[in-house]
Design a protein around this nucleic acid. Structure first.
Lengths: 215, 215
DNA sequence: AACAAGAGTGTACAGCTGTACACAAACAGG
DNA sequence: CCTGTTTGTGTACAGCTGTACACTCTTGTT
């Protein structure tokens, strides 16, 4: 019973890879057509329907894959047990390596975050939020910054994720011939994260100047 | 000679507005078709060519418009001469107000930053970079943070712009019925920028721990 | 060995796509 | 007033789009 089942999964994979390949070549996911995806996957257009009801569903499947990748990334980063003194630099390096290793998925992620269907946007934002949350939990268990309130920790996690993930597109858009800029981006990002944590260290709880105008 | 010329500009505007309207309704710019844009603008498809060679050119025109808007935004913010104590909160408010006032353009900006044609991406990144640069210049002339090096100031500007502009999509994606979340986003963003400036205040020039591995 | 399930194929069609061509109407400058 | 320019129209067409239908295999189950 495995053989046939595996075969099905295989073409399903081929379809997803085809979509990713096209995205990787510069096309936007929302401008793809079922037909060219199918052709790229080496199947006839109609075969597409045996796996997905349409491109939207394929997109959601890819979103799930991103969630998986992010979780995996977080887990192995955790296993590495980074040294405290080089933790920031190592984490940034690790993220950048991952981006450069799965460019298609990250490109899809970046695209869908601002331009996908509402469902896809939400799915990916959820994954990123999850990612931020775990990071904050780690920070907390490491007894760093433990004097921040829960809301402020969330705020911090959100800020770090935003900063790092904004590097994604920048990295993927580097022309092939100017790859030397990678280290420049790396240095800048490390500085940025370090600056953020300096700020977090000097963060004085919601003492003075709380409620501003409430919109 | 004005009449005919103005008329031409008018339909050109109609075409651009039509594209923006479609984007605002949830479609991605790269999935628009010349025909529906023309129809939306109230002209026959062929008339499109009297103004643009294709959708790419229209997109670049819209990018220019974003540049204009950002420059304008920066200028009026400067004229306001914000008070030092509430400067951060006021700036965030000002930006958010602008986003909510021209949602279509900002949506287009957010989309094109990650998903447009290479030319469009570059154009918009350039505008944002310009924006960051001016901000840094302002900070410098205000004699704040004058002990940072030029590179570090760039890094700081980039970080602030990234943080604030990442709010754009979040803001535009709010479901109509949960607009109360706006103030939540506002509070968080203000905190984030404030934290960044705390970090910048505690920033110790490139003293120790400089060169990391060079990729 | 016979059968049912289902993955993939081939054909078909209506609708949309960009764009080429010839034309109409409006306006400018002479 | 008339004549050349230029904006917008109508028609046309070849190519692509999603998807419906009937089909052939291959495979797992009885």
């Amino acid at each position: 019973m495995t053989t046939k089942f595996e075969k099905k999964l295989k073409t399903r994979r081929a379809l997803m890879d085809a979509a990713l390949a096209l995205v990787s070549e510069g096309k936007h996911y929302s401008s793809l057509s079922l037909r060219v995806v199918a052709k790229r996957a080496g199947v006839v257009p109609n075969a597409f329907y045996r796996h997905f009801t349409g491109l939207d569903e394929l997109g959601l499947a890819l979103s799930d894959e991103i969630g998986l990748l992010l979780r995996q990334l977080m887990r192995t980063a955790r296993l590495k047990g980074l040294a405290a003194d080089s933790m920031i630099a190592d984490s940034v390096d690790f993220y950048m390596d991952n981006v450069r290793e799965s460019p298609a998925l990250f490109r899809f992620m970046a695209q869908s975050l601002t331009g996908g269907s509402p469902a896809m946007r939400q799915a990916i934002r959820l994954e990123l939020g999850h990612f931020a949350k775990e990071m904050v939990m780690d920070l907390n268990s490491l007894r760093v910054l433990s004097d921040m309130s829960a809301v402020d920790l969330d705020m911090l996690g959100h800020l770090v994720i935003t900063t790092v993930s904004s590097v994604t597109t920048e990295l993927l858009d580097l022309p092939e011939d100017r790859e030397n800029l990678v280290s420049e981006i790396r240095e800048r990002t490390i500085k940025q994260v370090r600056l953020i944590f300096i700020g977090a260290g000097g963060w004085d709880k919601p003492s003075k100047k709380k409620r501003g105008k409430k919109s």
